[in-house]
Design a binder for these strands. Structure first.
Length: 681
DNA sequence: GCTATCTGTCATTGT
DNA sequence: GGACAATGACAGATA
């Protein structure tokens, strides 16, 4: 007995492991302790049948977990927030950073990977075979229907949960069974039966169903115990059934052995693989959602200032699209033929249409991807930093600090001389910002027009007019090393004068003027002895002291404030764009990770489905075998079409008669007068 | 000439 | 209330 129990326990553990692969929690300890059924599948959330919520695994799969202290959490929340903003506002300037959102919902979707559907109230293994109660996707259901044998099994196994508790209760109660029609076979009888069967199957005698009781609690050293012979000693010796061997062998099958059971899996498996995988891979080419990572070339433009040129001018950096191309990386076997298996319901991996084209396409929300494409953010900031440092190599190291973070104001390609029209208009503006009435960057043009003023003339009588033919107000390099030099800004004229003049003095002067930003030009025009970089980077206290203690004019003060404000805002804009880029980069990594996770889960599901299919086949075969050895009151053998075996709590096995409606009726009964129980026509 | 992209700037909001 | 950061929006420059 101990040996039998040991084998059964081992088999149970292995079977438990197998079930755990599909998310069915099996409480072996409780079962072995005799408290609960090892496999409970009930309706409520309290059920032990809790399939793994894969959406929750997202955060802890492979050790990946979102933790408040985790650095990746920034991406996580930022991405989610941005995605919400994108979807809420529809602004092209924002981008959906949480692509994993739809991945989580689509790929490891609860319904796909078997989140316990509410309708799943199956209470036993066989009940888990039913697919109807699990919200299985339509395709799977249809495919299930194709396999007639499997569907037969499912139908017979369907609806047993109602009797499960009854049988469980009956099996655990010592008192005689009520008139449910079922009976219990004591283990002694089973042993007797086994002995007879082992001796000669040809001599096996049908077991009256009324005696069949089934049961076999684990603690009773057998899957099947029969009290029929004891309760009804007058009955002929029931046929011996090698149930122990069957179940022990069945349950002791290692999971790995299921791989050898592929022939048992219905032939539709391959077809299902193709169909389901195509449905899962679903038109979403995640590769397309990857950042292409365009590279840039540093080319020296005119003037010697390097600019970044995209080597791939073919389009936006991110080409996130919902395409109709199947995701080829979904291996053909990523899905399972579980639909054709009797245990599909347990796996219940896919769901209706969730992975279908339309559904997934809707979730992808092409508009979101289009918005991402519109961003066109390119990861050039870091590159530009390097570029900037490279450009500054020839500069005085003392000024490099100011250029540390792309903080240099943009260079001005042109400036206006003091005699520019409208100069006097703005020069008188002492209290208002120069660009107060201006909108956007263009406003600064008028400000530049106002550069030359009477006040300016007072400070800078030696101001040399600059060629105004070029109205280039934007320099797309972040810094201007030449004018970041304090000496060059404090004493612009001297700096210009100190420049080694060549024969092309005029051209050089124009060139250097073009290097000046508007603020630099204004600062030089107003004779402000600070560079824009200094103005921006100096502490606020020092800046305020500068404004108050230097006896600056109102125009100078206003200019200084504007320079500081614009400079800081420019840095903020650069940082903001960089953050966006980082968020997108983080999303790329997230997408890759989720894609890998999805592929792994699909493989696992396929493997599990195969194993379950084999288990279902074996169970079907075993059930038929057992039923064929049993006899009803009339002495007729029990047909699988009318009777089913149900494994109740504590290993008790009950024979149930299937009603015409497909609902099995528990025929387990008491130990007395079992002939009068059971089977309802 | 058109388009995409980059960049600076302004306005606004929140800290 | 001012300084500041963040960010959307806009416009100019450029390839």
């Amino acid at each position: 007995m101990q040996n039998v129990k040991k084998y059964f326990t081992e088999g149970l553990i292995q079977f438990t492991i197998l079930l755990s692969l599909i998310g069915v929690r099996v409480d072996v300890d409780s079962y072995l302790n005799g408290y609960y059924s090892p496999l409970e599948i009930t309706d409520g959330p309290s059920s032990a049948y809790i399939q793994t919520p894969f959406h929750s695994l997202r955060d802890n799969w492979d050790g990946y977990s979102v933790h408040p202290k985790c650095p990746e959490l920034d991406y996580f929340f930022a991405s989610r927030r941005l995605l919400d903003e994108v979807r809420a506002l529809g602004s092209p300037a924002r981008f959906p950073t949480q692509l994993s959102a739809w991945l989580v919902h689509q790929v490891p979707d609860s319904s796909e990977f078997g989140e316990p559907p509410n309708s799943t109230s199956s209470s036993n293994v066989s009940a888990g075979l039913s697919s109807e109660s699990t919200g299985e996707e339509a395709n799977d259901s249809d495919l299930l229907a194709e396999d007639e044998s499997c569907s037969t099994v499912s139908s017979r196994l369907r609806g047993r949960q109602e009797e499960c508790q009854t049988s469980t209760q009956l099996s655990t109660e010592p008192r005689p069974y009520p008139s449910t029609g079922a009976c219990e076979i004591p283990k002694e009888e089973v042993e007797l039966l086994n002995g007879q069967i082992d001796g000669d199957e040809a001599r096996e005698e049908p077991v009256p169903l009324t005696q069949l009781a089934l049961s076999s609690a684990l603690e009773q050293e057998g899957l099947f115990t029969s009290g029929a012979s004891l309760a009804c000693p007058e009955d002929p010796p029931p046929p011996a059934i090698d149930i122990h061997q069957h179940w022990s062998h069945f349950l002791s099958l290692p999971v790995s052995e299921f791989d050898d059971l592929d022939p048992l899996v219905p032939q539709q498996l391959s077809d299902l693989d193709a169909s389901i995988s195509s449905a899962i891979s679903q038109d979403v080419s995640l590769r397309d959602a990857m950042v292409t990572g365009s590279t840039y070339d540093m080319i020296p433009p005119r003037g010697g200032v390097r600019t970044l040129v995209a080597r791939q001018p073919r389009g936006p950096l991110f080409r996130l699209e919902s395409t109709n191309s199947s995701n080829s990386d979904s291996s053909p076997g990523t899905t399972t033929g579980l639909a054709a298996l009797p245990f599909t319901a347990v796996v219940n991996g896919t769901h209706n249409g969730t992975l279908s084209h339309g559904a997934l396409g809707g979730c992808l929300d092409e508009a979101v991807f289009d918005q991402i494409n519109l961003l066109g953010l390119e990861g050039c900031l870091d590159t530009m930093d390097a570029q900037l440092l490279g450009n500054l190599q020839g500069i005085d190291p003392c000024i490099l600090e100011d250029l540390d973070s792309d903080s240099g104001l943009s260079l001005e390609s042109s400036s206006r001389g003091p005699t520019s029209p409208g100069a006097s208009e703005v020069s008188s503006a002492s209290s208002s910002s120069f660009c107060e009435d201006e909108g956007g960057a263009m406003g600064y043009s008028s400000e530049a027009d106002s550069l030359p003023s009477k006040g300016i003339a007072e400070y800078d009588t030696t101001w040399s007019p600059v060629d105004l033919s070029e109205s280039v107000w934007h320099d797309h390099s972040y810094s201007s090393p030449a004018f970041s030099h304090p000496s060059a800004t404090m004493f612009p004229h001297k700096a210009i004068k100190q420049e080694p003049l060549s024969d092309e003095d005029d051209d050089r002067e124009d060139y250097e003027d073009r290097e000046l930003s508007r603020d630099e030009l204004r600062a030089r025009a107003l004779h402000v002895p600070f560079s824009a970089t200094e103005i921006v980077s100096m502490p606020v206290e020092e800046f305020l002291e500068l404004l108050e203690g230097r006896g600056l004019s109102a125009a100078q003060v206003t200019l200084l404030r504007d320079i500081r404000r614009r400079g800081k805002n420019k840095l903020a804009a650069q940082n903001c764009r960089k953050r966006k880029l980082d968020a997108i980069t983080g999303l790329q990594e997230e997408v890759e990770r989720l894609q890998a996770q999805r592929n792994r889960l699909l493989r696992e599901r396929q493997h599990t489905a195969k194993a379950l299919g084999a288990v279902g086949q074996r169970m079907e075969h075993l059930s038929r075998d057992v039923l064929s050895r049993l006899r009803d009151d009339s002495g007729r053998p029990l047909t699988p079409e009318r009777y089913t075996l149900q494994c109740g709590a504590n290993g008790r096995v009950l024979v149930q008669q299937i009603r015409r409606s497909g609902v099995a009726t528990t025929t387990a009964g008491g130990k007395t007068d079992k002939r009068k129980k059971e089977k309802k026509p």
